[in-house]
Write a protein that binds this DNA or RNA. Sequence first.
RNA 1: GCCCGGGUGGCGGAACCGGUAAACGCUGCGGACUUAAAAUCCGCUGGGAGCAAUCCCUUGAGGGUUCGAGUCCCUCCCCGGGCACCA
Length: 816
Amino acid sequence: MIAAYDPAAIERTAREQWESARCFEVDEAPGKEKFYCLTMFPYPSGKLHMGHVRVFTISDVIARYQRMQGRHVLQPMGWDAFGMPAENAAIQRGIPPAKWTYDNIAYMRGQLQRMGYAYDWSREVTTCRPEYYRWEQWLFTRMFRKGLVYRRNAVVNWDPVDQTVLANEQVIDGRGWRSDALVERREIPQWFMKITAYAEELLGELDAMPGWPESVKTMQRNWIGRSEGVELEFPVPGEAGPLTVYTTRPDTLFGVTYMAVAAEHPLALKAAESDPAIAAFVAACRLTDATEATFETMEKKGLPLGIDATHPLTGEPVPVWAANFVLMSYGTGAIMAVPGHDARDWEFAKKHGLPIRQVIAPADGSRIDVNDTVYTEPGVLVNSGRFDGLDFTAAFAALADHFESAGTGRRKINYRLRDWGVSRQRYWGAPIPIVYCGECGAVPVPEDQLPVVLPEEVEFTGVGSPLKDMPAFYETTCPACGRAARRETDTFDTFVESSWYFARYACPDSHDAMLDDRVHYWMPVDQYTGGVEHAILHLLYSRFFQRVMRDEGLVRESEPFTNLLTQGMVLKDGAKMSKAKGNTVDPQELIDRYGADTVRLFMMFAAPPEQALEWSDEGVQGSFRFLKRFWAAVQEHVAGGPAGRVEAGALDEPQKQLRRKTHQTIEKISDDIGRRHAFNTAVAAAMELINAVTRFDDASPAGRAVRHEALEAVVLMLSPIVPHICDALWRALGRAGALIDQPWPDFDPAALAQDTIELVVQVNGKLRGRVAVAAEADKDTVIEQALSDPNVQRFVAGKSIRKTIVVPGRLVNIVV
RNA sequence: GCCCGGGUGGCGGAACCGGUAAACGCUGCGGACUUAAAAUCCGCUGGGAGCAAUCCCUUGAGGGUUCGAGUCCCUCCCCGGGCACCA
């Protein structure tokens, strides 16, 4: 009688063994090749969801596989512990954010341990602890001294009823989520980090990052958005200064028929003083939230200001409009409009009856009418005076030279990337270490007074940050002059914590420095895994912080993550699992019913990691069924007593076939996991081999040896995915020593050799037959054999053969 | 609106560099075992024609390149992610 598969008992045994031996705690071993395997750390939202289980399993499979490759593997875990949900819990349920967060962490840590992830828990990092955030406060003060941070006014969503700043997520259809009031844009002073100082480097280095997906690199390139253009001036008669605009198309300058300025632009504000219609327009433009998606999709509106600018080349008057699609905070707050050759300008001109002038003609000489269709391609200049006939490159150079020599313009490289606003008007975050003094201005908190500790005992009113009502927090003295001063009550964007945690895992207990020498051993991260939704912001901020730390002498490398894997979401009924949609599946229930291995296996089998994964309860049962079959196959085999070694020269044909399948499978799974991260096809290949073993009915010593080899290979190769059951089966197969320290199996090329191979025969590209040919047969022999197939003859007979194509080892195509 | 992905049987997916479309699994149907149920095992399972051999059709839609296209190019449709204060 064979013991049934009992996941609960097996998993407990394996877990206790790993924990008591501290299998996953690693130190720095300079002689050994290290592998730093990292997952984007979770926000402690309450309990694990399926998205967590998926990403952590992917990373754990890679970590365990790399360990079997002989590498010294670090896989740490921690908590991105600051954020809005903790404040919402405090408002809704009266639980202090700190308690709510620490309770969630304790519960989720237990769930992670139950999943059997190979984490070094001795390195756990929790970002809401002062011993962590003191170092980002420290780095901020260093950046302050270098001029890498500055303070300026910036736009926020303002809820006029609650009198508070709203996150974009808290604005629903232009209204505050609690008050339902129309949200306004409002400018308040905020701290910025100069990520633009690194724009060129962040862009250029992308070309030397083969371990990142092309799609992510393309998104980052487009986000940074480098453009080469010309900044030039349009004089405005009667005004103090000219209108300065930036354009990447100076070749279209003769096509300018109007200008547009932001509603907040001084020219618009001045006109509003005497014109009620303009004043109303300016007021209406404030009533929108601050997101780019809203801005780009809203109806384009504008009003003429009754002012003309002067065209810098023709001297003609050009009307100036105020428009809602020009923002004061981007560029100069003014644009030149070329409706003939810019799609947005064209639509606006059509709507308001503004003239459209063609100044570019297609290079191929074809005729166009810009009054019917906008023409945005580069071409040859027409209607452009002495610049007529020039192409884009020549016109760009000639016009840029003209303005530079006249002193009214200059070549300029622009970036779409904007500096990173890090101020948040919220409580549950790391305090920004600044003191405002009436005499000295903004003064960074000195190193010996860090950390600025966030008080964890607070009263929540639900509106605004409690820190603003806590004199004990904000009343202080100026570190420079000693006078009474006021502490900054804004906290950091939580992206600040997640921009450097990966380095802190190398030395989480470092009390005297942000990072110590251990970071040189572990960094950079060899494999980083996380959601594709972080492709831009988190990953770009981390690349920026890595460079700031490099320039502080804290780390050596410029890039923090050598290889990046972005995993897809977990969906149910075609939609992302979320509480709001009510389509969540609690992983804990499944772990309790089937065990962690079944959940891990389903996650890896159901879809490739980069793709969205459709949840299926039946699929989970299928994974459980496979583990039961796997368990039974090994138990039945070992019930027959010990098996001997394979004697490769003394096998019959079925034994050779099973052995070939075993070694083909080792080759395939090694490639699937090691190179492709195609865990789904790796599992499918393991299933095929177990199916072959189950059908293989041979109790002879040679047969048992071949079967033993196959089962041992599957146990080793599935162990990164389902480590608990494999640990038990490894011992069942009579092997001593911990499975996690076994080397990954090698395949024997000699076992793959085949005498004959089957080729597909096509006639005119359509499948017409199959032939078995000798493995070393030459082209003529292959064609001769292909033509001898009766079905192929039916399609070739009576026709002349025009061409034959032989793809070695695959197919023959006969073209008639 | 802009940027990045994706669309293949009833379902999840496979097909890696342009070379057998649908591996593996799920579901469903039929059968075995059982007093019965569960579990397990065996067989079939893209559509159509045919007794069969075999043939025709099929990878969101339409066009193109090629001996050959799910894969490459162009146009379009739909779904998802991101758009700087969700994390």
